[in-house]
Simulated assay, not measured.
Amino acid sequence: MGLPAWLLVLLDVSFLPLAALVMGRLVIRAKLWRNLMFVPVLLLLALANLAMHLGVTQGKLSLIREGGYLGVLLIAMLMVLLGGRVIPFFTSLKLGRPKVAPIAWLEALALGSAIGVVLLQLLVLFGVPVPAGLLALVMLVAAASNLVRLARWEGYRTLHEPLLWGLHISYAFVSVGLLMWALALMGAFRVELALHALAIGGIATMMLAMMSRVALGHTGRTIRTLPGIGVGLGLMFVGALLRSPVLAMFPQITHWTYNLSILFWCIAYLIFLFHYTLPLLSTRVDGKDG
């Protein structure tokens, strides 16, 4: 006999608030105040999760859809925040060049507009009638400002290093996804196409690039591109193109784009598992904790 549905919902929905509580305590104890912003983000992700559960139990498709949208946009916002911290730093460190100095107004516009998109989507989730034109405008501002921000990080110098260009490309897909979302709100195509630009090209590709880097450093190994990781990142990039912009332009090839993007995703992450499963299940090679 299975567990009752309400208990499964409770267990699932409770995880993120508990994670926020634990993280908040650790951040306060360490006085790393700039990381405190992750607490409300985790709580908003919990809200998005709850909305989707309520949508299922109440048979309300809109709650499922808008909750899912909020979750993806929240993670995209985190990419804007964290990407701004680590991508220019990793790039300058690897290339042996000075870190590009941020432009205050551009940083504020890039992050502020990304936060604005999330807040507007939160209003939509609560049933507030947000004009599609307003949401599209804020998304366009976020897309443009973050694209300019990315261009300043000298990604063109990283073509020889997959662990770097993977981060740059995935960040670029934040702008691609938001641009496509704005166009979708204007009736150009389905929002789901923009959603996949963010989810595959942005989130999943950045996850692969970042995990491939930090899994080496945090197991005491030299940070380098292992064989096939560049291929995996390239496959994620192609899969994202097929599943979003290409499909938007050529909807008649839907079947092929679905199958190829799924296949490319699976191959990319299988390459990661091949290289990293044993190191991640083993103690650090340098004998340190962590």
Rank of each mutant, 00 (worst) to 15 (best):
K31D: 08
I262T: 03
I75E: 00
A204H: 02
G202F: 09
W33R: 13
M23T: 13
G201K: 06
R152Q: 14
W153C: 11
G287L: 03
P4S: 01
H168C: 04
L70K: 09
H275I: 07
Q252M: 05
L54I: 06
V191H: 06
A110C: 10
Q252D: 13
V174M: 12
S175F: 07
P17W: 08
M210F: 13
P88C: 03
A144I: 11
F264S: 03
L54N: 00
I253V: 15
R284T: 03
M77S: 05
G202Q: 08
G155I: 06
L208H: 04
A132T: 02
L125Q: 09
L163N: 08
G230C: 01
D289G: 08
L109M: 15
L150W: 07
A104P: 02
E192R: 07
L111M: 14
P17C: 11
L226P: 02
L185Y: 12
A248Q: 11
S145N: 04
L21Y: 08
V138L: 05
L198I: 11
L122V: 04
G232F: 05
L208K: 02
L70Y: 05
P131L: 02
L150P: 06
P162R: 05
E161W: 01
T283Q: 07
L26Y: 04
R157T: 01
A101I: 15
L216A: 12
A197E: 07
A51R: 05
R221E: 15
G228E: 02
C266F: 14
R221I: 11
A184F: 02
L159P: 03
L235E: 04
R29E: 11
H196W: 14
A114M: 02
L216H: 10
A215V: 07
I64K: 01
L26P: 00
K288G: 02
R243L: 01
S282L: 03
L278G: 01
L241A: 08
Q58F: 07
P129V: 00
V231L: 14
H275C: 07
D289R: 12
S212V: 02
L120K: 06
V41F: 12
F250W: 15
G24P: 12
S113F: 09
V118E: 09
G127S: 10
L280T: 08
F15H: 07
D286K: 10
M23N: 09
Y258E: 08
G166D: 09
A199H: 03
V148T: 13
M206L: 14
